[in-house]
């Protein structure tokens, strides 16, 4: 086993333990201990507005699949989609979902159907769609523009894997005078989102959607575990810098290389 593999196992096991630990100690899933994120507050507001206004929300899940590193952002988008459907079940029009990946499209439809059955949305005509808009970034962006420009859409939530083409989506929302909540794991797209979206999700905020939308205490435990690991990484980085300054880094590398 390589050092990278060993480190990976340790990290995963530690994460799993921390998540279980925090999910046990946090019996009451309250959100009072997490910092407020404006984008998720905006999502809750827009859900309420959609209920009152008789409009619908648009959730675009991006073009990331489940077989790559972008899968995490795509799954995070699916989690947000599920929460939004549950919260907006009393809307006249359920949310509409769009994807740029075939697998995510299938999963989105599965999530929609499962959630709709769970909340007893019997009218299939009102079931939110999870259509595949396009298989390339710009075809997906161009196809999504049609949904964004629908007058019945009151807000757009872009959570998933996007490239720089997301500026099309955010700009279209701006032209429709609808708020845009956007988050992605791709860094260039984050820069675009920061510049063009009304409520951006930066970095790992995308993965905290379940905790902020009330998906359960395991999501809160995930955030707590991430915080623990974030501090661990900080101390490791600072320690590495210190060791490098002291010249001990080479000794450590050699020691690790010898042991592995």
């Amino acid at each position: 086993m390589s050092a990278t593999g060993f480190t990976g196992i340790v990290v995963i096991v530690l994460f799993l333990g921390l998540m279980i630990f925090f999910s046990i100690i946090n019996q009451e899933p309250k959100q009072k201990n997490i910092r407020p994120i404006q984008a998720y507050n905006k999502i809750n507001q827009e859900i309420n507005v959609a209920v009152e206004d008789g409009t619908q929300l648009h959730i675009s899940l991006g073009r990331g699949g489940i077989t790559g590193p972008e899968s995490a952002s795509a799954l995070a988008g699916l989690s947000i989609l599920k929460q939004v459907i549950e919260k907006s079940s009393v809307c006249d029009y359920p949310p509409v979902a769009s994807t740029g990946n075939a697998v995510i499209s299938i999963l989105a439809q599965d999530t929609i159907q499962g959630t709709s059955k769970a909340i007893s949305i019997a009218d299939k005509g009102k079931n939110p769609s999870g259509e595949l808009v396009g298989v390339t970034p710009f075809s997906y962006a161009a196809g999504t523009l049609t949904t964004i420009r629908d007058n019945n859409v009151s807000a757009n939530i872009h959570t998933g894997w996007f490239g720089s083409e997301i500026t099309w989506l955010t700009t279209a929302g701006e032209r429709q005078s609808t708020p845009t909540i956007a988050g992605t794991a791709q860094l260039p797209a984050q820069a675009v989102i920061y510049a063009s979206a009304s409520d951006p999700l930066i970095g790992e905020e995308l993965y905290a959607g379940g905790a902020y939308l009330g998906a359960g205490k395991i999501h809160l435990a995930s955030i707590s575990a991430q915080d623990v690991f974030r501090w661990i990484i900080i101390f490791v980085i600072l320690g590495s810098v210190l060791l490098k300054i002291l010249g001990i880094d080479i000794f450590v590398e050699n020691s690790l290389a010898g042991s592995m």
Binding site: E52, D53, G54, S154, E174, R175, S177, T178, P179, T180
Partner: peptide
């Protein structure tokens, strides 16, 4: 009557 909620645009576009 269904009154459309007049929402202030987050950012006014500058065409």
């Amino acid at each position: 009557k269904v009154k459309p909620i007049t929402k202030v645009a987050p950012v006014q576009t500058q065409r």
